[in-house]
Design a protein around this nucleic acid. Structure first.
Lengths: 159, 159
DNA sequence: TCCTAATTAACAATGATTCTCAGGTAGGAG
DNA sequence: CTCCTACCTGAGAATCATTGTTAATTAGGA
């Protein structure tokens, strides 16, 4: 599942357009960091990105990598796997269940739905591994937030 | 979405049975920690659990909470939201897509599947908030791990 | 009741991520 | 094309979540 050259160019185009639209400077470092992430078929962490970028920009600091990644995140140009940073959250519900995740406050609520426990897996997934079960995340706005901050913008990191 | 008393008793039953089966001592602290988590309708982190338990057991230490939670995790009595701890991983793919997650090495691979982007949301979810989109995680064993460690056991925390 | 291995609390240590600040640079104004 | 300034970066210290170490404590079988 390598990233296709065409796809890579698309992503880089979006990136430059995105920075410009936001009135943010297009620096050498930002370009290299984004390119590195955009061409990774897996999902590296900040340290891995930093290590790779250092091959070409030996003085880049891990700090800059973090700052850049969170900036791109705020601009909606990249995302994180799972809830970004914050401390690990625990769940005593061992029955199969699914989550409603609020995109504003990122609170997470359980619900059950037997149909979601074993969805029909598309054919292409066989190339990745042996599926055992499925889990669904419904993203939306929770009742609380709908009332409290009807138009909150993104960048709802931390907590 | 409060936890029902019956459900709580079930969970506590599982907990005690689980510890006994594993030959692990049932201490006051472990009981209080589990009870606290089991009766939370949301998904607290270790610190929140610790704070709540301290109301009843003022000397409990945060480390004990962590150790207990990971122990219960290894015994399969609780789970974590998203990949437990480890560093944040980034994703430059902004198109809607889904993830295949390996339950052994927790590597995560992207795939797309338009049907999964907007699943039919069950009725009960309306009580939680306003859904916008859906995302599916397929859990299974990746090709790599199937070859390398055909029978790996759970507790595959860290990285 | 006694004994011992399992468990705990306190505190030090680690690893990820963020802050502070002084120097550097993109890119619009002239 | 050069200058200027606000935005960026690198370095190192600081912070926060989580884990390791150790001596004292306790569950629960003998």
């Amino acid at each position: 599942m390598k990233i296709l050259p065409q796809e890579l160019l698309d992503r880089i185009g979006c990136f430059e357009k995105g920075l410009q639209r936001a009135g943010v400077k297009i620096t050498h470092q930002r370009q290299e960091i984004f390119r590195e992430l955009a061409q990774s078929p897996d999902h590296p962490d900040a340290e891995m990105v930093c290590r790779s970028v250092r091959k070409r920009v030996p003085t880049i600091s891990l700090d800059t990598v973090y700052r850049t990644l969170w900036l791109l995140m705020d601009l909606g140009l990249i995302s994180t796997l799972g809830a970004s940073r914050a401390s690990t959250r625990f769940d005593a519900n061992t029955k199969p269940h699914h989550h409603f995740v609020c995109s504003r406050c990122s609170s997470t609520l359980d619900f059950s739905c037997p149909e979601f426990d074993h969805l029909d897996i598309p054919h292409g997934v066989k190339a990745l591994g042996y599926p055992e079960k499925t889990r669904v995340e419904v993203l939306g706005v929770c009742l609380q937030c709908k009332k409290t901050r009807p138009k909150a913008h993104n960048s709802e990191r931390r907590e």
